[in-house]
Nucleic acid binder design. Structure first.
Lengths: 208, 208
DNA sequence: AGATTGGGTGTACGTCCGTACACCGAAACT
DNA sequence: AGTTTCGGTGTACGGACGTACACCCAATCT
């Protein structure tokens, strides 16, 4: 039984990505050696170069993957969003908790590398988060009651919401699934979102 | 002219701390080698052990220093706090910007190592932030209008405020001093704090 | 004045690192 | 069927790493 060459290459590539994600979890990308990854995958060190020119390029591929996961989260949020504000908030936090549990490694990777990764990796993550903020701003613009808002108002609120989401995700990473601590983080996130949405709609309509 | 032994030792220790702070800025503590630090300081590698048993212990010393800086920030916030809510917010953000500029290296260190540092370093930072949250909670309890709040309410609000401060500090680290981007980050922080304080006082008094 | 202490030195080691190079064998192409 | 392509192999190198060990000498102690 012969295996297609492209399929085999893809399989090894995946194994490298998974190994790097796993190994970097206990420290950082910048402390990860090519030889460690190769050993974990079960290939000889030099074979690594058949897939990536360097650990840093591997890191950029992991950023892309992780940002895809983040975008999937935002898509899921849009899909499940109801019309009632309370419904939107409860649903969003529930989805956030669920997704962070499901793709724990990706979110932990972003949290770690956002400030500690190689410069190119940091920039890629920063761009991804900015993009998410802009997408959310256009989403908010289509919500009822935001017709009179300036573009800057929408952008600021988006930054606040994404910032709260990121902070919540980072806090969730430090709590065990189903723990009281997780509950408290979720509760706090709901309160924060409520404050921001309710507060924003009242306060913005007065001053903006 | 002879130099006291303890003074000399302290001087070298400081040089090691400064070198480590400086060198780790371009990556992480875990990617920092004892030899790099020694070379930067101008001592032979083995002399490092006269001051710290390992790079990780050096890291813990840096955490202590950085947390001291953070506590100084909170003290400064308390000192300059007026009675008017708007005054408190504007003053707090101004102090935050100023302090992050002044002790840039310490705040960048915390941001980096909070999720990417060695486990003991991460724990030390997490404990320091929790402590700051608890201290803020007792401060809030002494503010007028919070007499009826439950301890949990105060704790949640503290977490929100500290979380916002940390997020703001991290954003400031990515903007040049006096730039429009810095202005925008400061503006966003003011809005966020206003939403949280105003929102909390209205909403909490209804449900708590 | 003589003995002790301790920060800093210099050498030396085994280990891990990235990567250059020549090579292999089977899938893919002609 | 013959040739080419290419993912993976194995060896080999120079360099950086942590750290053990014996040593030095000036500040400090007695």
């Amino acid at each position: 039984m012969t295996v297609s060459r492209v399929a085999q290459k893809e399989r090894t590539r995946r194994a490298i990505l998974d190994a790097a994600l796993d190994l970097s979890a206990s420290s950082t990308l910048v402390a990860l050696s090519l030889r460690q990854v190769a050993k974990e995958v079960g290939i000889v060190p030099t074979a690594f170069y058949r897939h990536f020119p360097s650990i840093e390029d591997l890191g950029l591929a992991l950023v892309e993957e992780s940002l895809d996961t983040l975008r999937a989260l935002l898509r899921e949020l849009r899909r499940t969003a109801g019309t009632d504000t309370g419904e939107i908030i409860d649903g969003s936090v529930a989805v956030l908790v669920e997704q962070v549990r499901h793709d724990h490694a990706h979110y932990a990777f972003i949290a770690r590398e956002r400030f500690a990764g190689p410069p190119t990796v940091r920039e890629a993550i920063a761009r991804g988060i900015e993009l998410a903020e802009r997408e959310l701003a256009t989403d908010l613009a289509h919500l009822p009651g935001t017709a009179t808002w300036s573009e800057q108002d929408l952008q600021v609120l988006s930054e606040l919401i994404v910032g709260a989401m990121v902070t919540t995700a980072e806090r969730l990473l430090g709590t065990p699934t189903g723990s009281p601590a997780e509950q408290r983080v979720a509760d706090t996130a709901r309160i924060q979102l409520r404050m921001m949405l309710v507060g924003a709609s009242n306060w913005r309509s007065q001053t903006g």
